[in-house]
Amino acid sequence: MNNIKLTGEQLKELAGYIKTKGFKDPAIINEILDHFACKVEEEMEIDSSLSFYDAVHKARNSFGVMGFAPIAASFTKQLRSRYRKVYWKNFWQTASAPLHIPLLLVLGYGCFKCWLWANAHNYQHLMDMNDVSAILTLGYVIAQAVIMYKEETRKNLYKQTAFGVVWFFPWMLIYIMPHSNRPNIPVWVSAFIIGILSILAVLQLIALRATMKAAAADYNEVEQFFNA
């Protein structure tokens, strides 16, 4: 579109310039870089006597007083929305698959029965917590750590955004809360809640894995371009 094309060195300088404005993530830099570079090229084409640095200054000013911030903000917002969709799509797909429904019900019922059994035998070795709750909590934490480790351990915007759409802690609190803290609730209700939470936790872990995979794929694509 423009006849003047920036060199690789000049593009690196532009990327560095964007970084100095506080946008350090490669995803954001890539989102801004092409448009910014096109504008610099346009300025250099309009006025051929303009130096690269003057063109950068003029191009930057044309982005307005907010600079790159609106682009970065809306990009992050769109990412969040994308991962939220990926997350819930996988959550409901897993929950509604004909093969999964009986498996999930068996899992929930198994946890319900185990919890009742542990409660009847007073198996509460860790901070008054029902041992089944403790095992489920530990399993949940380990599974989550494995997913995070396997998918993408480095911090990046995609991973952080994907992780941000998942809601963790309320599950854990209900899991680990001893039944003795809820004397007015019948035992079977507590066991039922544990059964339901176990099903939801499994669905959540599957959806989390799919979301993190999507984030890792997005990041790999951007990183490939960024390092090229």
Binding site: L6, T7, L11, L33, D34, A37, S74, F75, Q78
Partner: peptide
């Protein structure tokens, strides 16, 4: 970004003139 979010647009990326477009 809003149109992308609503599923009205889709994107493809290509390397053009040394940068991601």
């Amino acid at each position: 970004h809003k149109l992308l979010d609503e599923g009205l647009l889709e994107t493809t990326t290509e390397q053009v003139d040394g940068r991601m477009r």
